[in-house]
Design a binder for these strands. Sequence first.
DNA 1: TAATGTTTTGTTATATTATAACAATGTGTA
DNA 2: TACACATTGTTATAATATAACAAAACATTA
Lengths: 132, 132
Amino acid sequence: MQKQTFLTKNQQIVLNLVEKSSQPLKAYSILFNVQKKGIKAPLQVYRALDRLVEIGKIHKIESRNAFIACQDSSCQISKATAFSICESCEKVTEINNSKLSKYLKNFKDNSGMKYSKYNLEFFGVCKKCKNK
Amino acid sequence: MQKQTFLTKNQQIVLNLVEKSSQPLKAYSILFNVQKKGIKAPLQVYRALDRLVEIGKIHKIESRNAFIACQDSSCQISKATAFSICESCEKVTEINNSKLSKYLKNFKDNSGMKYSKYNLEFFGVCKKCKNK
DNA sequence: TAATGTTTTGTTATATTATAACAATGTGTA
DNA sequence: TACACATTGTTATAATATAACAAAACATTA
């Protein structure tokens, strides 16, 4: 049997929830919200999340241990991600800036290491919060 | 009493350990290794780590939940950090590249958000591991 | 279509990471 | 010395994540 290329039921349930949310969701908050759909255990959520991250449907916000739907429909894989995070309201937005991604994809330091992936998180206070 | 400007005993103990390590250390591994020095509880470690991160003596590798000593002696605060992480041996190196930091410090997207901080993690396979 | 091998699932338990709450202690300043 | 408040120690617990393994689902091919 080949590795699945479609989404399984649990993956679809989790993805639907994460896509509906405008904010990153935590794993146990996802669990709580999908229990009525038959997902009972943390591992079922984590497994779905793992795969969804792997195929680029969602991203993990590492500094928040939370998951957000990919906002770029053409994204197939989570290997070049950048986010802006408001430290006041915790709003997270995926940054889709071709100059930035080009710059980072081509970045080379003197370590001789080839980078196949990066994750960038910017922090600040968003416009809305600043005007409060 | 003003906020402390020096390092307290626990902070110094934790910092010494982290600085001795060539690799990022996890909080509970730190705890285990400083118990002989009188630090008994996780919270004592986490409090020391929090402060050390705050003043820039150490950085947290978010994707690994681990802590590494700052490799830039002039660094006073952890507001602009970049790391390279080998996904094979887990070696982590702080990237100190003025062009990169200048580029990221000045980065502006169209959200109107002012970024006061960023954290960037590059992933790949290091030279050593690639030659194996 | 039955046998096979592999992926995926469900389930229980447990490991790992991190914080809450609060009393006690230490320390600078008035 | 008295105070205000920062820091500490301590216990308990919350939050995040994975191990292990049996059962079920499914594709392949014999």
